[in-house]
C-alpha cells in the first residue's frame, strides 16, 4: 500500500506510521477535521478473503475522499486511522474468519487526512458453506456512542 503524500493545504497535519499485521507499514498525514456522516445513507463495501476491496457503493466513495478507481483492488485498511487500536481490527478479523458477524464503532481515515465515524457491521459472505469474502455496512452513529468509543480506544492504545 502506498504512503499518503504530504497534504499541501492542511496546516497542522500530523505524520503517523501505521504498522499492519502482515508486517507492512504506511505513512499517513492526519488532521483533526471530521466529515459529518451523510444523513440517511449506508456505506457499503465488499472485500475478498484477504481484505482487498472488490465492490463499494457511492457513499463509500464519497466519504473516503478517494476515486472509485483508487479504492477497488486496494486493501480495506487503506482507511485505517491511527487513533484506532490494532486490537479492534484483530477482533474484527478473528470474528468474521470464524464465520460470525462483527460490529463496532470505527474512526475511518479519509484521503485528505480527515476522518469520519461509523457504526460498522461486517459479515462473512458464505457460499456453498465456504467464506468467499466479507461485506461491511456502516451507518450513522450517535455522538454519545462515538464519545464512548473514543474514550475506550484511547485507553486501549495507552495500555
Amino acid at each position: 500500500m502506498l504512503d499518503m503524500p504530504p497534504l499541501s493545504n492542511a496546516g497542522g497535519a500530523i505524520e503517523h506510521r501505521l504498522d499492519y499485521a502482515d508486517g507492512s507499514s504506511r505513512r499517513v498525514f492526519v488532521t483533526h477535521v471530521e466529515t459529518p456522516y451523510p444523513q440517511g445513507r449506508l456505506i457499503v463495501s465488499r472485500t475478498d478473503t484477504r481484505g482487498i476491496i472488490t465492490q463499494c457503493n457511492q457513499s463509500f466513495v464519497d466519504m473516503s475522499g478517494y476515486e472509485r478507481s483508487e479504492l477497488i483492488g486496494q486493501p480495506h485498511c487503506l482507511l485505517r486511522h491511527p487513533d484506532m487500536p490494532a486490537a479492534a481490527f484483530r477482533d474484527l478479523w478473528e470474528t468474521v474468519q470464524a464465520g460470525r458477524q462483527w460490529h463496532g464503532y470505527v474512526k475511518n481515515l479519509r484521503k485528505d487526512g480527515g476522518h469520519y465515524w461509523v457504526f460498522a457491521t461486517v459479515v462473512p459472505n458464505v457460499r456453498d458453506e465456504r467464506i468467499v469474502g466479507y461485506t461491511s455496512v456502516r451507518r450513522e452513529p450517535s455522538r454519545e456512542k462515538v464519545a464512548q468509543a473514543e474514550a475506550t480506544y484511547r485507553e486501549w492504545i495507552r495500555s
Binding site: 460490529h103 459472505n125 461485506t135 455496512v137
Partner: peptide, 12 residues
Amino acid sequence: EFMIDIISTLTQ
C-alpha cells in the same frame, strides 16, 4: 446473495 448479506447486517 450480496443484497441478502447487506440485509443481514441490518437485522442484527
